[in-house]
Structure formats: C-alpha cells, structure tokens
Design a protein around this nucleic acid. Sequence first.
DNA 1: ATCGGTTAATGAAACGTTTCACCACCGGCT
DNA 2: AGCCGGTGGTGAAACGTTTCATTAACCGAT
Lengths: 346, 346
Amino acid sequence: MIKPGTGPSMRSVALSAGVSVATVSNVLNGRATVGPEIVERVQAAVERLGYVRDNRASRLRSGDSRLAGVIVPDLTNPMFATFVSTLEQLARSDGYDLVAASSRNDPAEEAERLRSLRAWRPAGLIVLPCDGALAERLPVGLMTPLVVADRIPDAALNDLVAVDNAAAAATVVRHLGAGGCRDCLVVGTSLAISNVRERWEGAVSAAGEMALGLIEVGFDAPAPEALAERLRGAARPGAVFCLDHQTTLTTYLLLEEIGLVVGRDVELASFDEMEWMRLVSPGITAVRQPVEEMADCAWSLLRRRIDGDARPPQTRRLRCAVTFRGSTPRYTPSPLRGADQITTGG
Amino acid sequence: MIKPGTGPSMRSVALSAGVSVATVSNVLNGRATVGPEIVERVQAAVERLGYVRDNRASRLRSGDSRLAGVIVPDLTNPMFATFVSTLEQLARSDGYDLVAASSRNDPAEEAERLRSLRAWRPAGLIVLPCDGALAERLPVGLMTPLVVADRIPDAALNDLVAVDNAAAAATVVRHLGAGGCRDCLVVGTSLAISNVRERWEGAVSAAGEMALGLIEVGFDAPAPEALAERLRGAARPGAVFCLDHQTTLTTYLLLEEIGLVVGRDVELASFDEMEWMRLVSPGITAVRQPVEEMADCAWSLLRRRIDGDARPPQTRRLRCAVTFRGSTPRYTPSPLRGADQITTGG
DNA sequence: ATCGGTTAATGAAACGTTTCACCACCGGCT
DNA sequence: AGCCGGTGGTGAAACGTTTCATTAACCGAT
C-alpha cells in the first residue's frame, strides 16, 4: 500500500534548497519577485528530489481548476473517440487537463459520471448526451459551465454544438430522388435520439414525390425481422438510407445475406461515414460529420464560458459533407472507386 | 469566472443539518457511529443543497487516491479506444476514477502526460508506451504502481501485459507456407516498435523454405515508393503480410491502385484486425488481438500492486486468434464470406 | 543619520476534507 | 451512590498548497 505522506512535498524542496515554502511556490509559479540565484537553487532541489506539485492541494487552495471533463456515449465509436482525442489536444494546449468518461449509452451511467466528474470540481464540462432527457439529470445548482454537443436535449438552456442533420439528410434524399428513386426506406435506431429525428425530418422535407418509409431498429438488435422482411418482400424499396453507421453495417450485412447486390438491386446511403465504406466495392455513399470541427467549436465555447462570458446560450450548427459513391450509382458522374465526388450538404 | 469558494461545502451541509462537520463526514463515509435520525437529517441537507464532496480535499487529506491513469499512443485507434473503454469500466466498478491521456505517438508528449498525470497523485498507472525507451522517461522515484501494456520497453522492470506476437505471426506464416507460398513480403512500420519486431521474428521463425522480405514504411507515409516498386515489379511476392492495421490499409489501397486483385494475384494477411477486413471481399485474413482481455489483465495486475503486492514484476502474454479469409484462399477450407474459420495462434 | 520607497523573502492563514482524541450521556452493575 | 463501558457526537489538527500581509534589506535622496 502506498502511504499517504509518501513522496517529496514543497516542504522537502524548501528544506533542501534552504528557502521558505512560500518562495518555492513563487518559483514554481514563475512569480517575478524571486532572485535569480534563489530560482536556480530551488529548481535544482526540485530536480534532485523529482518533485511534482500536488494538484489536489494546489487546485484546492487556488480555486482555479484547470480541469475539464467530457462525457461521451461510447468511447469505442470512432467518431466519439476522435472527438475526445481532438478535445484533449485542444485542452492541453490551453493548459487544461481533460478527464474523459463514457456513459455507455445509459442515462443512469451518464448521471453517475456527471456526479463523479463534478467531485473533481472541473472548470467546465462537455457532454454528448445519450438521450434527450439530459436536463433532468443535470444537478440542480450546477455552477460549472456546460457545453452540450452532438445530440440536442429536449430542453436546451446551454451552449449547443451539433451537426446540421436535416440539411445533410435532405441532400442525400434529394439526390436519390433526382436519380429517379421512387421509394426509399429510412432506417434508424430510434427517433428518441435527436440526431435520428432531425435526419428523418430532413429526409421527409426533401422527399418530394418519393415514398419514404421508416424503421426503428433500436440499439442492440443485430438485424431486426421487420427490416429483413421489408427487404426480402416483393415491395422492396429502391434505396435504403441508414441514419447511423451501426445501422448501415447491420443493413449491409443483411443485404449480403439476402443476396441483394448493393448499388444494383438496391441503393444504399449512410449518415455517419466509416472507413470501411470507402473500402468495400462499390463504396457506400455517406455523410461525413465534421468531428474535429465540432470538438473545436465545443472547446472554444467552453473556454469562453470559463473565462466569464455571460451571454445567453448559443447554438452552433456545423455543415456535413456528402460523398457519393457506387452504392448510389445513378447519380455518380464517375462510378469508379477512388473518384469520389464531394458535395457539401446544406 | 467561477469563484473559488463557490458551491456548498461540508460546512454548509453541517450548518443546514444542525450537526458538526465531522458528523457529516461520518455520514457521507457510512461510518456506523451515527444515529439513524441524524443520518436522515444530513442526507436531507445534502439533497437540499445539491452537495457533492470535493475530491481534491478528500483525497488530499486521506492519502487514499482512488484514481488511476492510462496513457495510450493514439485514442483514435479503435484498439486503444477499446482498451481505454474496457479499462474505464473495470476501474469504475472498483470505485476508481480513470483519467485517460494520449501521447499521440510522441515520446515527448508521453513524458509530459506522465508528469501531468502524476500531479494528480494516481494510485496507479497503465502505460502503452510509444516506443521502447519508456524506461528513460519514467520519473526517477516513481512511487506509483505501473503496468506496461501492449508494447514492451527495452528495459522491463515493471509488470507487463502483451500479446503473443511471435506465435500469432508464426501461425500466419506457417499457413501461408503450407498453402504453397514460396515468397512473402512482410510490411511493418518500424522494427523500433517491439510489437513489430516480435511479429517479424515470429514470421522468420516459421518461414522454413519460404523467402521472407521486410519493408519498414514508417508512420506517416501514405504509400512509400519502396513498397510500390516491390509490388509492381516482376519479382512480385506471392503474399504480403502486414504487421499492423494501418499498414494493411495502405497496402490494400496500393494493391488496388496498381490493379492487383487481392486473393488472386497476391495474398494478403494482416496483424491487427479491423472491422472493414471482414466486410471487403474477399475478406482479409487477420490476427485478432484480445484487447478486452488485455485491459482486464492490466487492471487486475495494477489492482494487485495498489493493494500492496510486492512480488517481482510479472509478464503476461495473451494469445491471439487468427481468422482465415478469402485473401489467403489456398488455405481456406470454405472460401465463402461469412464462413470464417478461427484458429488460435500459438 | 534619517527617511521613504522599492525589492526579495517569509510566516501564517486558509482551502475542504478526514481522523483522532475526547467528551457527554446513559443504563446497568456492585 | 459511585463506577464502568458503550454509544453518539464534536473540536481541532492535519493534508500540501497559495496568498497576503509583513518583515528585512538595501538604495538614493534629503
């Protein structure tokens, strides 16, 4: 068991350098009022003892926390991993430590993480909520600045960063329609997720003459029977538009199992691009979300709040890019792999 | 700016409940010496004020840290993301907070992260080093238990968890050989990475009659000319064995660009499996590393150290599984997609 | 020599907890 | 009545910092 009092403290350093504790503190914090010879003595002592300041005491005494927290629904999701990674880099370059937690898509866990993060008194929090009811789970008197990202809570009283879901979904559907598709099946996890809802609404808004169907497959189901039946039946849709990458994968495997050829028997488009979508052939038409930009935006909003900005909550919508590939062949000028055309949605 | 003294403290709770600070502490820590009626009063006050204990003070006073740190080379790598995610779950279920940091494959950043983590006085650290020289970067008198995972430092004086690289690589090469392959090109980032070195050595040990070539492509190069030349030339190898997923991707795209058909013109195998490898056709034969098991193992080793185990450092090698797919067709009993055969390497 | 003014260093209080020694009380025993 | 042990509660010290008021030293000007 590592004993509590283990390791060198400022006292040891002070003793070893023959100065007072206050002076050591001044040196460590780069205050100007210390003579150069003393600075050197202190630094030598620090080096010699391998001293590292104890943040618990430091941050406790000076209310300045220099710690930020982020909660994502799932760290394994490459999109969220990229978000956290980008955020960490930004935070560090501003001198903040970042502690990341995963809610595993469980509201209860999210609330728990929120609580345990708060115990460290972070200067700010960034939350990617796992459902719309985040507001209910927020501690009553949360004094910490909070930025909500990716998914929009039902009651929004905080800064918000999200992607322009509706516009991007509309772009996809419009192009499907322009190519002559008359019947598109939209597949999403659940309309309870704001992203899914907005994407669906965006699709509807751009449907025009096209008949749009919707299937909610939930979260953990491998390939729900409802979807399989719809694809196997005679009334098979001309296109399937999946509203997140997990759903796209499920659908892709299901199509293969049924024996339908993507891009020929049925068109396929995905919201949320993954690496494999450009590797399979034909490639899958997909909406790429600007994750790094989102992290960037979230961090700068948070920084502003930490620095005392008291303006009313802001909402930022970021534009997505759509990449058309062979899975929606009728609208692809060049059906060749690697010759992707990028269209900005919105 | 959020003021230091903001928010309710134990004092406020004590005041509000009409008891002493010590009693509040006792209630919060579930000590038995408090009467039921008082417990209720305190809990009511906590609820009413929305009080959350300040970990900085709490952990400072009681030397008990209940915080663990993990440093990975790259959070965006799904393997490391899974590692962190698994670890977080384990840590939390043991009552530990986990703070994760990424070294972005940069030794300097790794050292920096190590330092800033140490400032929080974690009870233990898990490091996936970005190169073999970790030992040089470790603080001199590091009192914190440390478990090194995935990559093996040159000088190993800590608990170690890694994958049985050599055995798995040997399994792959043996099967290539058994299928009649006479000439295999091995592609890796750099032999400076212990994993890559071990995999190469494993391949060599199982080569037998087979001629083995090696190309080191480095880390950020898209598709180095040396590799392209080797594949384009007349002396093109019968198989390419890539030692990590990034390299596999590079090679896969390069092969496609050159116009070689994987599984027919050239066989392809990968160490480190990614989702897309089972989605493309033909599927890519790949070694799957037991990431969750590795995290599990690392955590239990760390827990043991935290709890005072003083036995000499242990090394744990975990077995990988190899999945043969269409990219190495000659050894695949059933060349059909979805009919993967799993062989345990080692 | 004395005085103000600046500079360099320090002592001690405070941050919000935990912990330990201590106290007040009570009921049961001789 | 006096004593004893147990129960339930508290005051105050301590954890390792930061910070502020204070002191000590020195310099140039009177």
